[in-house]
Structure formats: structure tokens, C-alpha cells
Amino acid sequence: MRSGENPAVKSRHGGACGHRAELVNSLLNPGLKRLAQCVRIFLLKCRDLFNCTNTVGESIMTTRREFIRNAAVFSAGAALYGCGNPPEGPFSKNERDCLIAMAEQIIPADKIYGGATDAGVINYIENWVTRYWPETLPLYKKGVESVQRASRRMHSKDFQDLDFATQTRFMEAMEGAKLDAKDWSISPRAFFDEILIRSMQGFYGSPRHGGNKNFMSYRMLGMDMPVVTGQNRYGGNS
């Protein structure tokens, strides 16, 4: 979102993207659009509040159809979460924070564009280990455990609590397999590669999977997306 609102981005790449978004938005009833925006913001807030990995809140509210779909999910979701118990994710808070910090190392935020944390790469990773390839969850559990063990022994802190530069050096050592083997129950290089590929997919892949929030990386690259010709629809199935 930060990238989308940045004036520098608009002036450089705003042309085609902005025009298409306006075109689509102008087709919507303004009242409906405002309502849709409210719902979307509320959904995002719900997600943050409950640590929820549901990807529905991520999608851009652009069409009537999508609005109706999300409205239905919203009411179902409100009923589900009404009791106030946050849903169980695959990771503990500590594990989650560690993975967020590692992904941010792969794609850090800069002065203009958001990074892995802003793009919600962690949502993609959570989808990966729950919905797409649950077989890989043990790898993540062992990997994070090893990272924390090594980090605590070397720096007396969890990985996410290290300063950015120390984290970078740690990641470089992981990539080069230059860490003390006794801390590791899996290969540090294999776990690094796993985080690398999943972070890149979460940041540069389609927002349908939880990352690349609001097409953040597409906007960063100035891509002319989504295509609105032919049979293309916003969303598709998920």
C-alpha cells in the first residue's frame, strides 16, 4: 500500500495502471464502492487483530462480483470470529516473528517501496505450510528452531530481535553454510533456500496466495496489470 500511495511511484508509472483502475472504479456505483472500501478496511483490521491468514482481505475491491463474494465471507467470518478466540496458525508467535524477519531480509523495505513484511509474505508462507504443501511444515519448524538456537548462542537473542545488519550477516552465513553445525537439525543452506524461494514467490507472485498485498511488487515494477481484456475476470477462483 505504501508504494501505491507514494507520489514518486504515481508520477513514474501511474499512467496505464491508474487509468485502468479508474475505468473499473467508474463502472461501480459510488455508494457501493464506499461500502466495499469500508468492508475491506474492516477485513484487514480483523486479519491483523486475529493474526488471521485468510487471504480474502488482501484482494483489491474492484468489482461488484468480488464485493458480493467478500461480503458473504465477511459475514461468515464475523460469525466465526465473534467469540473472540484467535484461530490457531501453524506457527507460534515467536516462530512467526522469526520468519517475518527472515523474509524481510530477503526483500527489505526501502524508502519508497515496501518489503516482504508490508507485502504479507508471511501469509503466503502460512498458506504454503497449511493449504498447499503441509508436508513442508516440519522443515520450517526445525529450521526456525535451529535459527533461534544458533542466534541465542551467538548473540544471546532471538533472530527477530537482532539488529538488521546482524540479521543480514546471519543470513549470509546460513547461505554459505558457515554456521556451527551443532545448532542445526537440518541443513542451514536448505532452509535458507526454502525461505528465499518462498519469500520471492510471496512478494512477486499473485496476491491470491496471501503475499504481494495490493499487487505491491507489480506496482513497484510498474507492471500493466491486471489485464482487463477478453475473458479475464478479477479474482478467478482461489
Binding site: 530477503i106 526483500i107 527489505p108 547461505e175 520471492m200 507472485g205
Partner: peptide, 23 residues
């Protein structure tokens, strides 16, 4: 973009701010 992110020219880092700037 994801497929493109895997193309790493020489002297370009695989990850981190350097990779993002390259993209």
C-alpha cells in the same frame, strides 16, 4: 516477476536490497 526474480546476472546479489534494486 517471480520467474524474472530468479534471473541473476553476474555481480547481482540473490537477495536483499541489492536484488530488489536490480529488479
Amino acid at each position: 516477476p517471480w520467474a524474472r526474480s530468479k534471473v541473476i546476472p553476474p555481480n547481482t546479489p540473490r537477495w536483499g536490497i541489492g536484488h530488489k534494486q536490480h529488479m
